[in-house]
Amino acid sequence: MELLLNGINGNYLRNILLNAAKDTERVDAAVAYATENDLLFEWCWNNKLPLRYWGRFDEQVPVSIPVLEQFLARRSGRYVCKLVRQFHPKVIWWRGSGTYIGSANLTQSAWWNNVEAGVFLTEDELVDGGHDLQLEQFFTEIEAHAAPLTQELFDLLSARSKELTRRKIAQKDAAEAFAATTTSIVVSGMADRRVISEG
């Protein structure tokens, strides 16, 4: 088992890709948020590995339009994208190689910058602990509640994404002001409230 803590221990989720291709037969990924094609997805396409991906469906469009476009363009039984409501896992099974279970989404920040925490279990470790059977059950259960990506669903999400972009632009100044707030201000404000309540 490997502990993946990104910058804290220098072990990143992206490191798994360096050695996984030779043993991987297929990738099953249940990851709520995906904004980038050039992380796991292109790796699968470039290595000609079948991919089944389940992402989150909600009003915030957690799976980006460019990601959905790539799946829709392929329209292949080898590269399947399905969406699920009330869905928040981050599990990637490189079948034959091992499984990541942790906090990282399929985003640049999660794979390069964020503090994330997860574990990677080799295929042998999964089998020895009977975790492979539990993972099979997990993927079977989410599949039962998943909707396949269709042109109609894509069009709905694309329209919603455009509306969210319009709102974001309209609120740009307020968002930038909030982003400029440092956590020291927040901590200081909490301390001030304690003094007042104790006084």
Rank of each mutant, 00 (worst) to 15 (best):
V31P: 04
V31C: 08
V31F: 05
A32Q: 09
A32K: 07
A32S: 13
A32F: 07
Y33D: 03
Y33H: 15
Y33K: 15
A34G: 10
T35P: 00
T35S: 11
T35N: 05
T35Y: 02
N37R: 09
D38V: 03
L40I: 06
F41P: 01
F41G: 01
W43Q: 02
W43N: 06
C44S: 05
C44P: 00
W45R: 11
W45Q: 00
W45F: 12
W45P: 02
N46V: 06
N47R: 07
N47E: 06
N47F: 02
K48H: 11
K48I: 08
K48N: 15
L49K: 05
P50M: 10
L51S: 04
Y53G: 01
Y53W: 06
Y53H: 04
G55V: 02
G55C: 08
R56V: 12
F57T: 05
F57R: 15
D58A: 11
E59N: 11
E59Q: 12
E59I: 08
V61L: 06
V61I: 12
P62Y: 10
V63A: 12
V63H: 10
S64M: 02
P66S: 01
V67G: 03
L68M: 15
L68I: 02
L68C: 12
E69P: 10
L72F: 12
L72M: 14
L72I: 11
A73Q: 15
A73L: 14
R74F: 01
R75W: 01
R75C: 06
S76L: 04
S76T: 02
S76P: 07
G77L: 09
G77W: 00
R78K: 14
R78S: 14
Y79R: 12
V80K: 15
V80H: 09
V80L: 07
C81A: 09
K82W: 04
L83A: 09
L83W: 11
V84T: 01
V84Y: 04
R85L: 13
R85N: 13
Q86F: 14
Q86V: 09
F87H: 07
H88E: 08
H88V: 13
K90M: 06
V91N: 07
V91W: 00
W94T: 02
R95W: 02
R95L: 03
R95H: 09
R95A: 04
R95N: 10
G96V: 08
G96L: 04
G96A: 02
G96Y: 00
S97D: 03
G98I: 01
G98M: 05
T99N: 01
T99G: 00
T99C: 03
Y100S: 11
Y100W: 10
Y100Q: 10
Y100M: 12
I101V: 13
I101T: 07
G102E: 01
G102W: 03
A104F: 05
A104R: 10
N105Q: 13
N105E: 14
N105K: 15
L106I: 15
L106G: 07
T107Y: 07
S109V: 01
S109L: 05
W111C: 08
N113I: 06
N113W: 11
N113M: 12
V115A: 11
V115H: 13
E116Y: 05
A117M: 09
G118F: 07
G118V: 10
V119S: 04
V119P: 00
F120I: 10
F120Y: 13
F120L: 14
T122E: 06
T122Q: 03
T122N: 01
